[in-house]
C-alpha cells in the first residue's frame, strides 16, 4: 500500500525531472547548431582587424568593414550573380524536367515505369559531382565550358532526382478523383491540370524549386571543376581559400549561409515531408 502511494507521488516528480532533462537536451542541441553560425556572423560583422585580433569579442561590433571589403573585392559581385544565375537555371531545369516525370509516375501505369524509377534511384548511389570531370571535356567541345548553363546542367543531375520524387509524392497526394471530376465537368486533360492540380500542387512545387535552388547554390566540387572565369560564389571562395585573408573568407561564408537560412525557413513546412518521402 505504502509503495503504491510513494510511487504515485514519485511518478510526477520523476516525470518532471525527465521533462527538464528533455528540454535541457533539446536546448543544448539547438545551441550546438546555432552557436557556430552565430560565431561566423560575429566575424562577418566585425572589422578586419577585429577578425584577426586575439583575444576576440563574442559579440559583433557591427562594423561593416569586412563585408564592404568582401563586396568590393574583385570578382565577388560577379560570383554572386553567377551563383544566383546557375541556381535559378538549375531550379527551372529540374522542375521543368522533373515535374512532368513526377506527374507521369503518379498518374499512369505503363511498361517501363519501374525502369525509370530505378534510373532515378540509381543516381543516389553515385558521387554525382564527380561526373563533372568527363563533362568538362565534353563541354569544351560543345562550347558549354565555363558557362552558367553548363554548370546548371550538372547541378540539375543533382536536383532532378529530388524534383522527380518530390513532385511524384505531391501529385500522388492529390486525389485522382479531383482530376476526373474536372474531366466530367468539361475540362480537357490540360485544363484540368491547370485549373485543379496546379493550384493545389503549387506551394509544394515552389518548395521543391527552392530546394533545387539550394542544392545548386551550395554545390562546390562541380562548380570548381567547370568554371574558370564565370565562377560561382562557392567556386570563388574555394579558389581563394589559400590566399585570401580571413575576414574575406568569413564574409563570404556568411554570404553563403544567410540565403541558405532563408531558403530553409521558406520551405520548413515541406522539409520533412519532402525529405522523408524523397528518401524512402
Amino acid at each position: 500500500m505504502s509503495t503504491v502511494a510513494e510511487l504515485s507521488i514519485a511518478a510526477p516528480e520523476a516525470r518532471k525531472a525527465g521533462n527538464w532533462l528533455l528540454v535541457a537536451t533539446v536546448i543544448l542541441l539547438c545551441v550546438w547548431v546555432l552557436l557556430p553560425i552565430y560565431l561566423l556572423i560575429v566575424n562577418a560583422l566585425s572589422s578586419p582587424e577585429e577578425v584577426t585580433a586575439f583575444p576576440k569579442r563574442f559579440f559583433p561590433s557591427f562594423d561593416f568593414g569586412s563585408l564592404s571589403f568582401f563586396i568590393n573585392f574583385a570578382g565577388v559581385a560577379r560570383a554572386l550573380w553567377n551563383s544566383v544565375l546557375v541556381a535559378t537555371l538549375t531550379m527551372l531545369l529540374s522542375i521543368g524536367f522533373g515535374a512532368p516525370a513526377g506527374y507521369a509516375l503518379s498518374r499512369f501505369e505503363f511498361p517501363g515505369k519501374e525502369t525509370f524509377r530505378f534510373l532515378v534511384l540509381m543516381t543516389r548511389a553515385f558521387p554525382l559531382p564527380l561526373l563533372a570531370l568527363p563533362l568538362a571535356v565534353m563541354f569544351i567541345r560543345t562550347g558549354l565550358d565555363d558557362t552558367a548553363i553548363g554548370l546548371a546542367l550538372v547541378h540539375t543531375t543533382l536536383a532532378l532526382p529530388f524534383a522527380v520524387l518530390i513532385t511524384f509524392s505531391l501529385f500522388s497526394g492529390i486525389p485522382v478523383e479531383l482530376e476526373e471530376a474536372a474531366w466530367t465537368l468539361g475540362c480537357t486533360r490540360l485544363q484540368a491540370f491547370r485549373k485543379i492540380i496546379l493550384p493545389l500542387a503549387l506551394p509544394g512545387i515552389a518548395a521543391s524549386a527552392v530546394f533545387a535552388f539550394t542544392i545548386s547554390w551550395n554545390e562546390v566540387f562541380a562548380a570548381a571543376v567547370l568554371t574558370i572565369e564565370n565562377r560561382t560564389l562557392t567556386a570563388f571562395l574555394l579558389q581563394s581559400l589559400g590566399e585570401s585573408p580571413l575576414y574575406l573568407k568569413f564574409a563570404g561564408g556568411a554570404a553563403l549561409v544567410i540565403p541558405a537560412l532563408i531558403f530553409i525557413f521558406a520551405v520548413r513546412k515541406y522539409l520533412f515531408a519532402m525529405w522523408g518521402i524523397a528518401n524512402r
Binding site: F54, W217, N218, L237, L246, G253, L261, L271
Partner: peptide, 25 residues
C-alpha cells in the same frame, strides 16, 4: 527547424564556420 538548418548549408560554408572557431585567431 533549428535542427534542420545545417541541411541548407553548403559544406564549404560549414568548413568556414568551423574555421572561425578553430583558426589561430
Amino acid at each position: 527547424y533549428i535542427f534542420a538548418i545545417p541541411l541548407g548549408i553548403s559544406d564549404l560554408a560549414a568548413g568556414l564556420i568551423w574555421l572561425a572557431i578553430f583558426d589561430q585567431s
